[in-house]
Nucleic acid binder design. Structure first.
Lengths: 236, 236
DNA sequence: TTTCGGAATTTTGGATACATTATGCCCGGC
DNA sequence: GCCGGGCATAATGTATCCAAAATTCCGAAA
């Protein structure tokens, strides 16, 4: 038994981890979900009051979020939610394509046959879900596809994996509704199919190219959703 | 006059910025310079006592360093200096090559003629310094070359630029002595020459390839230095 | 009416005191 | 001699207090 498990029972009473950790996750989740308006201010005291905790953990959470770029300092008046920037979105997707393309090229040489088989199974399920219009299930399958695909990467190249996960997180800001169109879901699954094929062929160059265009498609979807939202906002 | 300039005089009395900032830089500098032994523990109280400050800013500095990977949590006993990892070093250089190669491909299309001229001037100076064996001057020219080259990138693609700077910082851990061999300096300057040539040709593909191999050379130098150090350590 | 200066307020930065938790050692029992 | 429980210790986690800094707003003078 590991030493820290000794008091596991007591610790499980509290939701999870420290107040700082919880505060951080709370703010992060809301930020990524777009629950705060752009340029809205977040002060330590306000957050602390809302959560009923002291300023100390809130402070540390906010500083961590600043390092991640999810909030920006507002010159002596706390932090501010950064405004959406199409230019930044394009840049983030560009970097993502670069990193994930490279990651896949790496995986092409080392991935296990059994993993490929599992990936194929996941695609099959996603395909069926797509046909029946169950977009939530497609989303879940895609997530598991992603996790499985990158689990090996995490072991082989932890830094690259970490960077990719960071990029994915940042990008979430620009995809506020996880609601995907049916065509988008179809395209995504088709992209995964091609990728697994390239992977099974062990073609590094092809893997890289396919992953890049897969990311580019995701970017276009995000862009379309974004434009739709703007139209909606203008109507209001 | 901006409001914060009103007390500029008073603020200039203190070294620079907040205690947190200074603590952060202090630790960071020592960490990068290899002043702490691998696996050495760093506790909040110890650092706070050393610097004669309270735990609060030290804490925040340590957390920031943790996010950068310069220290790692030591399970309830503060932080620890991570042990060198050749695998991590390889990975970091690999990512650097990827990012910097892409960055240069981007610059190939947009860099100003005048900037190229400046870069050529810098190379010329570095070349002479190389011939006269003034390695410190070579280092300085290289640094200015780098800054100038990437100043435009910082404006066009701030995120990519930030990532590259991060990578360069991480990698510094593995190049503890800035002492470079004369051959290394020569190779570096020659690499820069080729890069500027490709840049003036506007050949994106060539830029990317040259930058990648430039980074690969830097990695090999770092590796060689590392091995030398290990030999020295074994003799002791 | 406009502008400049300063006081009040808001908010962060830093220090300290207290609570909590993990670790490691020591001692007793098997 | 080895294993296990418990206590001492050391370190982090959290809250609160005080200080410093920046913004805002108000009032007085030009």
């Amino acid at each position: 038994m590991r030493p820290q498990d000794k008091h596991a029972k007591r610790r499980r009473v509290r939701p999870a981890g420290s107040v700082r950790e919880r505060t951080y996750r709370y703010l992060r989740e809301r930020l990524l979900a777009g629950r705060y308006a752009p340029k809205e201010r977040l002060t330590e005291v306000a957050v602390a009051r809302t959560l009923g905790v002291s300023r100390t953990p809130v402070r540390e959470a906010l500083h961590k979020l600043e390092l991640e770029g999810l909030v920006e300092p507002a010159g002596g008046r706390g932090f501010r939610v950064p405004a959406d920037s199409p230019a930044e979105m394009r840049e983030l997707f560009e970097i993502r394509g670069l990193l994930e393309g490279h990651a896949l090229a790496c995986l092409a040489g080392s991935i296990e046959r059994s993993v490929i088989a599992e990936l194929e199974g996941l695609i099959e399920r996603a395909d069926e879900a797509c046909n029946s219009g169950n977009l939530d299930l497609v989303f879940e399958c895609n997530t598991r596809f992603h996790d499985l695909l990158y689990s090996q990467l995490a072991a082989e190249r932890p830094r690259l994996h970490g960077l990719i996960e960071d990029m994915r997180d940042y990008v979430v800001r620009y995809r506020k509704n996880t609601l995907i169109t049916k065509e988008g879901a179809r395209r995504s699954v088709e992209g995964h199919k091609k990728i697994v094929l390239a992977l099974s062929l062990g073609d590094r160059r092809l893997c890289e190219q396919l992953m890049r265009s897969h990311v580019r498609e995701a970017q276009q979807d995000a862009l379309a959703i974004r434009q739709d939202q703007q139209l909606i906002n203008e109507r209001k």
